[in-house]
């Protein structure tokens, strides 16, 4: 029962990630791509980790996955911010392409 629920949540997470990957081919300027794809990717990542944690129950495995989840949730916005700020300061204009 627990395994089935975990696998279902993992599949939902993979669907979110797939939508995020579609997002980097749909738009024609960098800002829209960065806004859409990396953020939907974050939601998919969160869902997949929760699925793995439910599947394994309460153990040291789940706690370690939780630590990785917290660290990634802290550094993920830093990566996106640094990337987009670099483009903004270097003078990338909207609709240039």
């Amino acid at each position: 029962m627990q395994e089935t629920i975990g696998t279902l949540i993992i599949i939902i997470g993979v669907v979110f990630v797939a939508i995020g990957v579609i997002g980097i081919y749909r738009f024609d300027n960098f800002y829209a791509r960065a806004l859409v794809s990396s953020k939907v990717d974050t939601v998919g990542y969160l869902t997949l980790m929760i699925g793995v944690m439910i599947k394994n129950g309460f153990s040291f495995f789940s706690l370690k996955v939780f630590v990785i989840l917290v660290i990634t949730m802290i550094i993920n916005p830093l990566i996106t911010h640094s990337m987009v700020r670099s483009a903004h300061i270097s003078g990338y204009k909207i609709g240039k392409e």
């Binding site: 990957v21 980097i24 960098f30 791509r33 960065a34 794809s37 990396s38 990566i79 990337m83 990338y92």
Partner: peptide, 9 residues
Amino acid sequence: WDRLLGLNL
């Protein structure tokens, strides 16, 4: 920056 985004993904 598109390449950096791809690397992150």
